[in-house]
Write a protein that binds this DNA or RNA. Structure first.
Lengths: 112, 112
DNA sequence: TGAGATTATAGATAAGTATCTATACAGACA
DNA sequence: TGTCTGTATAGATACTTATCTATAATCTCA
């Protein structure tokens, strides 16, 4: 006996080959995007990009953003972990600059 | 009497014109990015994009993603609120498709 | 070496959110 | 109209995280 599939269901069958994005890939992309998806971190990135030599020390970010220094450090750490910025100690200060290659990778998520 | 500024400090002064990104703008951008910055939602977006006519009903998403139907509905709502997808009821099913213009707007955040 | 300045870390707290179960709503069809 | 199917909403819970205060670590310089 043949099971009859109602028309309703047939209309809704997934097309062959519509494989879901691999979970591991999706998680890796989401981690990078989460780092950017925060208003304070977007402001930090904008300020670095607008600074002389496109780099900034922490001291330049704290006052304009009206947040405490540990909070700024927390956000810089998140951005660094996502590979979006790098910090380099020069004397007393730590200078943060954008990682252009990583930035381009994320842009490609949307251009593909 | 002139206050003497130590050399150390001079080295760290922000450059003129390095205005922070307006908070309201940053928050609006972050809202859109937060919608994308979730592995499940990335998978949903990928599945919609890979589907026939680039649209999908909820029933096609639930099983491959191994999540309950209310959870999928929750994510679809988030994506819709961010303007990234739109749902259209056709009979029993609601079909979701990508909003290309909105997608392009987000891509521009990274290409600018 | 010791004092002062800059940055990072630890721990606490409050707010946000991804997920579930239970249930309501909406359309198809017999 | 009543039943079945597909989708949305409500409420609860556990997990994440943005922020703060307090403190440690690191560097400069007198």
């Amino acid at each position: 006996m043949v099971t009859r599939i109602p028309l309703q269901l047939l209309d809704c069958l997934p097309k062959a080959g519509a494989e879901p994005l691999a979970r591991s890939t999706a998680e890796s992309m989401a981690t990078a995007l989460k780092a950017v998806a925060d208003p304070t971190r977007l402001q930090i990135l904008a300020m670095i990009a607008a600074s002389k030599n496109q780099e900034s020390c922490v001291c330049n970010l704290t006052e304009p953003l009206d947040l405490t220094q540990p909070t700024i450090s927390h956000h810089l750490k998140k951005l660094a972990e996502a590979g979006l910025i790098s910090g380099e100690r020069r004397g007393t200060w730590v200078w943060y600059s954008l990682n252009r290659e990583r930035w381009a990778q994320i842009a490609n998520l949307f251009n593909g």
